[in-house]
Amino acid sequence: MLKINKASFSDFLTDVMRYNELVAPVMTDNSRFETIKDVSKIDIRIHAYFPAKKFFFKKCQTLFTYYDGKIKVPEIELDKNQRIMIGLKRCDLNSIKRQDIMFLQETKDPYYQEERERTLLIGYHCSEPYDDYCFCSSMDLGDFYDLMLYEKDDAYLVEIGSDKGRGFVDRYRKYFWDTDLYIRPHERRTETRLHLNKREISGLRNNPEWKKEISKCFSCAACVTLCPSCYCFDLYEETNAKLDKVQKKRNWASCQLTCFTKVAGNHVFRETREDRFKHRIFHQIKYFKQKHGMNLCTGCGRCIRGCPTKINWVDMLNRM
């Protein structure tokens, strides 16, 4: 087993930052993943309020440009630095896996692939749940990382999860020490206080419990924006003032908004808030599983934490 001493951790990060783009959770106005300029700001224990998906599946991505009668695709930069992402929690890592399924397996999305391939994922294991909204221990999360850090006394034990991770360790070998310490099975688990008991929800669509919670929903779409797994998007076009250049763009979309299912002629398929809310929950814990064998939801709790009325759909399903 390898370890990194906490005393040299900051030196290690400074060294990493010198030749790579380093992304880590920081506390600014709110907690988020950011490209780091000052290593002292990093706190890898933070379960960021905002997810890390913006680094791969960008909030706004220009796909191509119509200009001068031709289509121009933005150059894919090959000399971009490698990006090291540190402090991803197990829920974050698993949602990256789910986005990989959609953008690399279901389709080959070159924009996502470019960002994803240059990124090395270093996880941080939460020994305690971050707060009462986390429910990852009920979501059957798998191991998905290049490196994983487990806190142990004055060091981080390092588990290697891929060849990419091994290569990275070789490159920074002087910070990694061999150790006899190991991770016990119970140390790999985080027991969250919130727990989703209901696994099969097909028969619950008409349960009266929905109405109570949905009556609190504003359709503000915070849940979807904060979800690290949600991958739906809008395609649209933007024209410049001279009307000679049109950019085809991709934006995050939300199934909680009426425009999401609006077709030409202004018909909306999921017109009621109830239908839209149910659609989100069913997609998260049923539809995706039917097709890919795993829940889309990874139990990070961001949708409840960020909800202005704190709609706790996990509790709601448990009550049914």
Binding site: M102, F103, E106, T107, D109, Y231, C232, F233, D234, L235, A253, C255, F260, T261, K262, V263, F269, H279, F282, H283, K286, Y287, F288, Q290, K291
Partner: peptide, 19 residues
């Protein structure tokens, strides 16, 4: 069936009918 289809590749989510 008719739905809002944007990416047409089974990703963007607009046209989803019950998964």
């Amino acid at each position: 069936t008719e739905r809002m289809m944007q990416c047409a590749m089974g990703v963007c989510g607009h046209c989803m009918i019950h998964g």
